[in-house]
Structure formats: structure tokens, C-alpha cells
Design a protein around this nucleic acid. Structure first.
Lengths: 224, 224
DNA sequence: CAGATTGTTATACATCTGCATAATCTCCGG
DNA sequence: CCGGAGATTATGCAGATGTATAACAATCTG
């Protein structure tokens, strides 16, 4: 009555790598780096621990791959937010802001994932460079949207500072909304973000937001 | 020639607890929770691992004590920033903002510490409540400073949103400045923070800032 | 259908982790 | 100066962790 050898099916290299990376990210997001052991990762991916070493040379390499996948995905989300929007600069910026302040960007798991990788990023020069690139790309995206606004007399230096400031608003609200999800009414973060950024830029973004549902909900009442 | 038993001196309970808590925080800040093993903590505190169990029932209890010490210290810093400042509301708020955007608040270790505890906080109800209290206390402090400004017709609801927005600016700049310290010139974060919050509140905070050295440095040149 | 390939599992191992307990040494009160 | 108390260290242990290697079987090729 010994447990017989577990049956399996072969899968493509791509599928296996994706499954292992997804499992790693899920575990890091939920329980931190300590929760992402080779055994836990393998179990979550539906395989045995040996496969990690087969597809990635070591657990360390899998970790780096998972982080790379994370920052790449982050960048894509910014572009996705702008996909279905028109050409009006104010509307585009407003859509970008709103997308950055609601799920799945604002989410406890996302912050958990970010926090879980922080130390590894700070200690690994390659990961740090990757993080820096990703951050600046996001900020440049934001800065380009700001530059497109119809405002007179904005210098490059001023533009840079505005981008940093707006990015800080987004980051800060992202942090607070994700860590304390109960602390805010639905849509409140989006409203506050749009108003704050409008104030910082001296341009009213709340005009162009016909397609941002959060702005039309009755405060104090969650929508169905 | 066996290694003889290590000599030691007795110390007060308070000193030992503080040393162990400090060692724990340092290790978590630098290397994450995984780096804070009982052996590493003891070594850093200059004792042997057994003492952890002697002064704290378990490593878990030490961890909670270290987190409690962290949030308590955070709260104090806000009060410290207002200690030597005058009674002018604008000046007080400006001092608070500036103090929140330079070392030791803006510091890689501080973010590392915060990130290291994130998962544990999210999974432990007691720690989560502690975190929530600490966050709201900080924000209320900020809101009180904002309320003291000489502005007409501000409702309570508006005040709350302004406090959330200003807090987000501080958090976001704190995050960016700590994780990418090279990315900003000295004083840049303070300048951007003051300008942004001034814009959000519709009140010029940069007038009252005679005692904020960052505003008088030549951009592009570090001060001695 | 037989054999080769290699993806996948199973097992073993050295190291590390937190914890428990015993052995000591320091310091205080007489 | 001495004895006791308890603070501190030393040692041991069960379980977890990452890794290495061997055994197996799913799929491909002929």
C-alpha cells in the first residue's frame, strides 16, 4: 500500500515557466519572501520541487525571473489604461490617473508583492537597475501626458517636478488604498487623485471624465 | 585548547530588550524578515540566542515588540518636527512637511523596515490595528495643521480629503526618495512637497519657510 | 511497436531555523 | 568573603530549506 509514483503529463517549457513564476509571485504577495519556498512554489504550480531547478538553474534565478515579469507587467498596465481613450490630452491623463487608483493596481496583493521584493532589489544591482528603469519609464509616461496638456509657459524643469509630484500622489494613494482598503469609500481615491493632480498642474481634469464611473456614484453609497 | 566559555556581564532588563529590538529592526531593515534570525539578532545585540527566549517568550513576541517600537517612534517624530517652530500655522505645516521629506524619515532603511513588516502586519490582526491607529494618528496630526491655516469656507469633508491628499504626497515622495536616493537632488523632495501641498490647499507654504535650509541651496550644487 | 530522449518525480543530504534544556558564571546580600 | 539566585551561555534536537543526484515514465522517432 505504498504511495505509487505520481502520474504527470509533459508540458511546454513556456507553460511551466509561467506557472512557476505565477506561483512565486502569488506566494510572495501573500506571505512575503519567506513563504515562497521551493516546496510551496512547486505545490502551488502543481509540480514537484525538482522542476524549479530544471527550468531555472536555482531558486534565486526563479526569483529574479519573477521580479522581471512583475516590472514588465507594471509597464504594460499604463499603456492598457490609455488604449480605449480618445485623443484629448486632459481626458487621457485623467484616464491614466483613474486606472492607477483602482483595482487591480490598487490591491493588497500588489503592495505585498512590491514590498516582498524590496530588499532583494536593494541588494542586487541588476534588479535595482531594472527597478530604476521601470520607475523612470512610468514617470516619463506620466510626464508626457502632462506635457500634452494645453498650458502656456511650462519649462522642462517645471515639467519634471510636476511629474515627480503627480507620481508621488499616485504612489501615496496607491499605498494607502492598498494597505487600508476599508479606509476609503469606493471611488474616493480616484476623486482625490484627480482633484490633487488638477491642483498641482493648474488644469481641471475632472471636466473630461465622462467615462470614469467613480465620479458619478453617490458618496456614501456603494454601487451595485 | 577548546574554546573557553564566553565571559559576559549582566545588564538591566531594559537595556537588553532595547538592544534586541534594535538589532531586530536593523536586520529587518537591511535584509528583510528572512535576515532576522534568532542567531543573527543575538549576534548583532552582542549576546547569545538563548537570551531572546529569556526576555521575550519567543521570536514571534520579539518581532511584535520590535514593530510596536517602530510605530511608536514614528509618531514621536511628527511631534519633534513641531518642537522648535513658532505659532504661525503656515510655518508649522511647512516644518512638518519638510521634516517628513528629509533624513532620517526619508531613508532606505526606514522603507526597508516598513516593507519587511508589511506581510506580518497584514496577517496579524493585532498588528494591523496598531498600524491603522498609527496611520490615522499621523493623518489627523496633518489634518489639524491644515485646519489651522487661515482659509475661508472649508468643510469637514473637504478637510478630510485634503489631509488624505497631502498625506499621499508625503508618502509618495518618501517612497521615491528612499528607494531611489540618487534620483533627486538634495532638497528637491522638500521643494516639490511644499509646492504640491501648497497647490492642493490653495495656500502658499513657501513664504513661511525661512528656517528650511533646502529652499536656499543653489539647485544643482550640494551644500557643505 | 521498440528504443531513445528528456521532462518529471523521488530520495538523500548538508545546512539553517526556532526552541528546549542543562550547564555555568556574574553579581547581590549577608 | 561566601552562598544563593538568576542572568547568560552552551548544547542538543526536530523540522524546514535549497540543492544534488538517481529513478522513472511520457512522448517522440524510426
Amino acid at each position: 500500500m505504498q504511495p505509487e509514483r505520481r502520474s504527470f503529463i509533459r508540458d511546454t517549457e513556456e507553460n511551466r515557466r509561467e506557472a512557476l513564476i505565477a506561483a512565486t509571485q502569488a506566494l510572495v504577495a501573500e506571505g512575503g519572501p519567506q513563504a515562497a519556498t521551493v516546496r510551496a512554489i512547486a505545490a502551488r504550480a502543481g509540480v514537484t520541487p525538482g522542476l524549479i531547478r530544471h527550468y531555472f538553474g536555482s531558486k534565486d534565478e526563479l526569483t529574479r525571473a519573477a521580479y522581471t515579469a512583475l516590472v514588465d507587467g507594471m509597464t504594460d498596465k499604463g499603456a492598457d489604461a490609455l488604449a480605449g481613450v480618445g485623443a484629448d490630452p486632459g481626458e487621457r491623463l485623467a484616464a491614466f490617473v483613474a486606472a492607477s487608483l483602482r483595482p487591480p493596481v490598487v490591491d493588497a496583493r500588489a503592495v505585498g508583492l512590491w514590498a516582498g521584493y524590496l530588499h532583494q532589489v536593494q541588494q542586487d544591482a541588476a534588479l535595482l537597475a531594472q527597478h530604476e528603469r521601470s520607475y523612470l519609464r512610468y514617470r516619463d509616461q506620466l510626464q508626457a501626458l502632462i506635457a500634452d496638456l494645453d498650458r502656456p509657459d511650462v519649462t522642462t524643469a517645471q515639467l519634471r517636478q510636476e511629474a515627480i509630484a503627480c507620481n508621488a500622489v499616485l504612489d501615496g494613494l496607491w499605498l494607502e488604498g492598498s494597505v487600508l482598503p476599508r479606509g476609503f469609500e469606493p471611488g474616493e481615491l480616484v476623486r482625490i487623485g484627480l482633484r490633487s493632480i488638477s491642483a498641482i498642474l493648474g488644469a481641471d481634469l475632472t471636466r473630461h471624465t465622462t467615462f470614469i464611473p467613480e465620479l458619478h456614484t453617490t458618496p456614501g453609497k456603494a454601487q451595485a
